[in-house]
Design a binder for these strands. Structure first.
Lengths: 330, 330
DNA sequence: CTGTTAGCGCGTTCAC
DNA sequence: GTGAACGCGCTAACAG
């Protein structure tokens, strides 16, 4: 590829002059500017951004690490991030952590080597075990979705506790008094908050919080939801309604219920967190609490930008309110 | 951040020695290697990859441009690419083209500036209008999904024509003789091929290809599918079965049919290309021809790797066979 | 085994 | 207005 030097030689000027016209600096005679510009075009000159970032000391690159890009939740968030980054002249480099803490750790290292200007992370590590190098090097960092307790790091997430409480209250308003919870371990902040919101609502309504109505699985996936709902049905009396803390658990729950001949919502009402990709679902079924996912991505990028530009001292946490959408599962 | 120079000074050696231990070169005395390594760790040294790629002349970075990452089809493909790239020590930078040719053009320029080692592109531009700079600079390029006719560029895609023919034949075997086609403009290779496959099958079966059974929309989205199916029903006699060339069109078709009181498959059988995200669909409904999407991503990366490593002279085109999955819409 | 030197491609003073 | 010179952080000969 042609370099700034090649152009300079051909134009009979110094590289600094070429550099000046590339970067649109003043104090270049109009005639030479035009001459150089013409050569720039003719020679198909493409500036080497890496070389220039070496001296500018910023790469205009941010890194994004997400657990699973094939999950439409993360993909939508990613889209928001990318869009905003692009608008601000940033390029996005991406790493799928695959819910594996080792990959998160590896990617942190890789991205630091690339000298990214900032990082947006939906952490796999519940305690931020992988974050050391980022913090030590003071690289701007924004967490999304999942919070890490006890660490002062900027965050954009949803008001999970409040949303979960509202969702549970919705069931209570419908007249349900025995409400089951199907959820994942509290290790992940998101589920912790939703579990708490469920309890909040029950207590507020003066309903008993019964342990046998709370089923905790290892992973928030359909298979687990299916097993949990069946175990839930063994309680006596069984619940009349069910709160699944995410959509995959809810899907599994429906399968589990069907297997035993129960129908939804007649025999059991179901609500859950998160919407199923609306474009690919023929008949939206679940009454759900939907997060502002795209917005989360946008806000995360905005917050990161503030840190990169040093417009923020300290950290900031933003919680977006999820919204209830009533369908046929209740 | 600490540099190789800082470490060298503190260790009392030259920077080349430090460089040698960083890159695990031989010919370094074991004792000094250990001493340097210790300092490297203590001082939290993180190599500046951009600086080293400046001299190595490769960035170990590839760029991926896709039309819409929130579409699970592209997200799955992206996942395959990322996984494979990561395994081979490559980092992925991503650009969402949003189906806009302008963004594709901008991103091409941006990625060239970043001196990516290769590019994987699902092109928006039907004729490759944005590819000039890539080809001119001989940057390794692999197209995925959509083909650009008349250009010798490596490609990984599906055998769309064959798949469409098989899908149509499946309907014919079911006894249908009047089969409608709901599709998007042939400008995009993928739809062009599927349209041809439909015609192939009809001709092979000795069935008439009737123009009024072929409805072409501007975009492959539900709204369009909905309108097209209703226009299709105006033909006399109307078809008894329908081939939608992608899943979004199929969804729209179902809506359109319902609106007029038709039920699927009783009044109208439907088949389509592409599966709806299986994890988020409670009751898989459509009989569909499913592409090996993840595999496409993997193969695209492998092919790009071959070009980057100059193990391939010329170009290569790979077509994966899609697979039929029979459900309840037929 | 180790250090010196010369760049990689570019931005940025500082003179002229 | 313009150019020479230095340096960003690192690798790669080449000496020694």
């Amino acid at each position: 590829m042609t370099t700034i030097f090649d152009v300079a030689k051909k134009a009979g000027v110094s590289i600094s002059t070429v550099s000046r016209v590339i970067n649109n600096y003043p104090y270049v005679k109009d005639s030479t500017r035009k001459r150089v510009q013409k050569l720039l075009d003719e020679m198909d000159y493409v500036p080497n951004y890496n070389a220039s970032s070496l001296v500018r000391k910023k790469t205009k690159t941010i890194a994004v690490m997400l657990p699973d890009i094939t999950n439409s939740f993360f993909a939508t968030m990613f889209h928001g991030i990318e869009e905003r980054a692009n608008q601000n002249g940033f390029v996005v480099i991406f790493g799928n952590t695959n819910e594996e803490i080792v990959r998160e750790e590896e990617y942190v290292h890789i991205f630091l080597e690339r000298r990214v200007d900032g990082i947006i992370l939906d952490p796999v590590s519940p305690k931020g075990e992988t974050l050391g190098p980022i913090l030590k090097n003071k690289v701007p960092l924004v967490l999304v979705d999942r919070e890490i307790s006890g660490m002062e790091i900027s965050l954009v997430s949803s008001n999970n506790r409040k949303g979960a409480a509202e969702l549970t209250e919705y069931l209570i308003e419908l007249g349900h008094e025995r409400i089951g919870l199907i959820t994942a371990a509290s290790e992940t902040s998101v589920f912790d908050m939703r579990n708490k919101g469920y309890v909040d609502a029950l207590k507020r309504a003066g309903l008993e919080v019964r342990d046998e109505y709370i089923k905790v699985g290892v992973k928030p996936i359909p298979e687990v939801g299916q097993a949990l709902v069946q175990s839930l049905l063994e309680s006596d009396p069984p619940p009349t309604a069910l709160f699944a803390t995410n959509n995959f658990l809810a899907i599994g729950a429906v399968y589990g219920l069907r297997e035993l001949g129960y129908s939804v919502p007649e025999d059991m009402a179901i609500v859950c967190f998160d919407e199923l990709d609306i474009r690919t679902v023929l008949d939206p079924f679940f009454t759900s609490m939907n997060q502002q996912v795209y917005e989360m991505g946008v806000k995360a990028m905005d917050l990161l930008l503030k840190q990169i530009n040093k417009e923020l001292n300290g950290t900031e946490k933003i919680y977006l309110d999820p919204q209830l959408s009533v369908r046929h599962s209740t």
